[in-house]
Nucleic acid binder design. Structure first.
Lengths: 197, 197
DNA sequence: GTCTATACCAAGATAGAC
DNA sequence: GTCTATCTTGGTATAGAC
């Protein structure tokens, strides 16, 4: 079937590059992702790949974005729950290359001053994730699972922060159980209301 | 006074370079630290600076190491307490450039495969920090401040992870209060014993 | 042992041919 | 839309002056 319009071949190829990149990084791990690696993998030249993304930063940001889309198969990103967060962290144990890519790009986005594609992406992503988790915590409060004294936004930021930080520690020492630790944090928030007489 | 031995001029100059780097990054912020920036700042050529450190990675690792030494003015690194952690995070609010450098180097160390100077540094550092915090939590348990059911090592990892993750969120959105959030986490662990009837 | 100068290589960005 | 060629920047390796 012949495709036409702005989303025909171009978008399809973009998606193909991203999925191929996800596969490679997932399988072969990740060691300082270069545009060349991706280009070789999809049988294209460096500028050929960049043509579809504009820059290295935009390319790797798109890869992480695509991963989020794939992962969100089950849940929609804006109804993301604490259980989803824990499940995601547990799943990440099986794709260290992608965790490493996430870690690397986070470092670049937060440090390389100017407004970059990745910086925008992560800022938006944290807004979305923390926002959704805040709602989840609020719901837990309504259901009597979390003490009403707690600030849901603070809990949401802490859960998000812990999952990021645990991934860093896990990359350096894979013997730690990220998901179990994160569950313990959630359990602490759940069953430990402050000032209980 | 003439200096002699292996620690004379060499060590002094090394220290001078590191302190100058700390000052610059603290003041002017950090934007993708290059060796050239440091070299210009200390009035030296690129290879001149590298002569004292061997590689870019080793240079920036040494900068973070030096920062730890300076910060540890009060406490010794192996008797690091939860209060020290919170105080450090609060202090970091005043030096965003150094937080950014820490974030950037963490990303590189965790992702660029092979064993690098920075990877060793961070692995050791987490071992040390988590180890010290584990002791601190254990002590809190002895004093009846933390429930005995909890695993001190898990709490220590979570506190460390949260402080890292909060710094990432803060770099992207400086309006959040990292120290307050971290205090809330510690308070949750302190006053919320599980299974309390 | 300390540093400059220089050369070199890898990687991202860009221009222009097809 | 994709390539080749080129430019720039950043890290690294070597030679040699002091």
């Amino acid at each position: 079937m012949a495709q036409r319009g702005p989303y025909s071949k171009s978008a399809a190829l973009r998606a193909q590059i991203l999925d191929e990149a996800l596969r490679i990084i997932g399988d072969n791990g990740y060691t300082g992702a270069t545009v060349q690696q991706i280009a070789d993998a999809v049988g294209m030249s460096k500028p050929g790949v960049l043509h579809h993304f504009g820059s290295r930063d935009a390319l790797f940001t798109a890869i992480l974005q695509r991963r989020d889309e794939v992962n969100a198969g089950g849940y929609s990103m804006d109804s993301f729950t604490v259980e989803d967060l824990i499940a995601t962290v547990r799943h990440n144990t099986t794709v260290p290359g992608l965790v490493a890519l996430y870690s690397a790009l986070t470092g670049e986005a937060t440090s390389h001053g100017e407004l970059s594609t990745s910086r925008e992406f992560f800022a938006d992503r944290y807004r979305m994730v923390v926002g959704a988790l805040t709602e989840a915590v609020r719901l837990a409060q309504v259901n009597g699972l979390v003490d009403l004294d707690r600030d849901p936004a603070v809990i949401a930021r802490l859960l998000t922060a812990a999952s990021d930080g645990l991934q860093t520690q896990w990359l350096l020492d894979p013997s730690i159980d990220m998901a179990a630790d994160l569950e313990e944090l959630w359990r602490t928030v759940l069953v430990g209301p402050p000032g209980r007489p």
